[in-house]
Computed example of a mutant assay.
Amino acid sequence: MKTYLFVMRRLPHLTSHVQETLDQMLTTAAFDQSVSVLFVDDGVFQLKQGQKPAQMVLRNTAAMFTALEMYDITRIYAEAESLSARGLDADDLILPVKIVSRAEVNDLLKQHQVLIPD
């Protein structure tokens, strides 16, 4: 089994790219691969509570992130500096995440065999 780390950097609801990456993540997990997710930069907004994608005629990817646990995707990380720079903290998010510092991100990347940036 390989270990995959999906790195989510983009704002939600601007394009279908986040949905496509999420589909790829769920498919990878469905084939019994080890999947982790790291939210950095504007990607932390993907987990923000209170999103209203219906107003933008896009799929609610935030709701789909809540299904990650059903696919055994439980290693979910958010970079502390990205959250702080955007005025967010763990209480603002729809999922429990492990908050890692920018210095810890490099170690996290090294722990995975396959990196998939969005």
Rank of each mutant, 00 (worst) to 15 (best):
M1V: 14
K2P: 14
K2A: 14
T3R: 15
Y4F: 15
Y4S: 08
Y4R: 10
L5R: 13
L5G: 12
F6G: 11
V7P: 07
L11G: 05
L11H: 09
P12C: 03
P12D: 04
H13W: 08
L14Q: 12
L14A: 10
S16E: 15
S16Y: 12
H17Y: 04
T21F: 02
L22V: 06
L22Y: 08
M25Y: 05
L26S: 06
T27G: 07
A29P: 11
A29I: 00
A29L: 06
F31V: 13
F31G: 05
D32L: 04
V35S: 03
L38S: 08
V40F: 10
V40M: 15
D42M: 11
G43F: 13
V44Q: 07
V44A: 08
F45G: 00
Q49K: 15
G50W: 11
Q51H: 12
K52W: 09
P53T: 08
A54S: 14
M56N: 09
M56R: 14
V57A: 12
R59T: 13
T61E: 14
M64F: 12
F65C: 02
F65T: 05
A67T: 14
L68N: 04
L68D: 03
E69C: 01
Y71R: 03
D72R: 00
D72E: 06
D72Y: 01
T74K: 00
Y77M: 03
E79T: 00
A80K: 01
E81K: 06
S82A: 00
L83A: 02
S84T: 08
G87N: 00
G87E: 03
G87T: 02
G87L: 01
L88A: 02
D91H: 05
D92M: 06
L93E: 02
I94G: 02
V97N: 07
K98C: 07
K98M: 12
I99S: 09
S101L: 07
E104L: 08
E104G: 05
V105K: 09
N106R: 13
D107Y: 09
L108S: 10
L109N: 04
L109M: 14
K110G: 03
Q113E: 15
I116H: 06
I116Q: 10
P117N: 07
D118S: 08
